[in-house]
Nucleic acid binder design. Structure first.
Lengths: 128, 128
DNA sequence: GCCGGTAATGAGAATCGTTGTCAAATACCG
DNA sequence: CGGTATTTGACAACGATTCTCATTACCGGC
């Protein structure tokens, strides 16, 4: 049984208002900023519930934080990372998305998540 | 200037002996198990250096740990990994190889390496 | 070989994000 | 309304990683 508390709603709303990915900490900070006396643990729980119910996606940032985004907005992307200076460029990879899903399915795997990142030297670092 | 200490070598060797991805903690545990009095901080530093020099790849596990693996041995391939029981299936991804190279080039990046792995639930674990 | 500068080491503390605990608050059903 | 199980929230606990800093030991030059 799932209850409909204003806290849960607040998290859902706050998540929907952010265009991209947000960390749980950032969401909590934003909510407090907006006047909600909501607790940090509650934000984590609400986000976990949303992700579990498929209402949000979650992934790990390069720094190890868990990031969430409202599920509706498109924009799943990957990264092109300079292994010298660390700059990252966001890239799209629709082809790869489909390939990953297909490949997983062909081997009987379900609930596929994938890691697709390219490491290289950015133009600046290539020059030196 | 980079110094060649037995600790660094030990980390490099230990990483090379593991087939897939290993966490820093696991590597450290394995090394201690093997008799090395190596320190945890040193393992982290060695892994960070290896990753920085392109001698190792790193990625984040679904649980938020940093995982490392020795860098691309001859037969380049990717993995389909069950996040419940850990089984891995080797997969080929020629399409993705080309896509990665092209994408890197389009953004002016050179010497591209990539990490392409899919995590999911294997048939056995999907059933339960 | 031996020496000195200097980067690397390591033990423990500190930090950060996240999860657990548990009493108090409260949404839902009747 | 009243009962009850779920949720909340402050705080403690936790695990992974990073920092600190005194000590060690490479390495290049003599």
């Amino acid at each position: 049984m799932k209850r409909n508390t204003w806290q849960r709603q607040a998290v859902r709303d706050a998540l929907g208002e952010k265009p991209g990915f947000v960390s749980a900490q950032d969401l909590h900070a934003a909510l407090r900023e907006a006047g909600s006396p909501i607790g940090l643990a509650t934000v984590y729980r609400a986000l976990a519930d949303l992700a579990g119910d498929g209402d949000a996606d979650s992934l790990q940032s390069a720094e190890g934080e868990s990031l969430y985004r409202a599920c509706v907005s498109p924009g799943h992307h990957h990264h092109l990372i300079c292994r010298s200076c660390g700059t990252t460029v966001e890239i799209e990879a629709d082809d790869v998305e489909q390939w990953a899903a297909k490949t997983a399915a062909r081997h009987g795997f379900t609930q596929p998540r994938h890691v697709v990142d390219i490491f290289g030297l950015c133009p600046a670092c290539s020059a030196s």
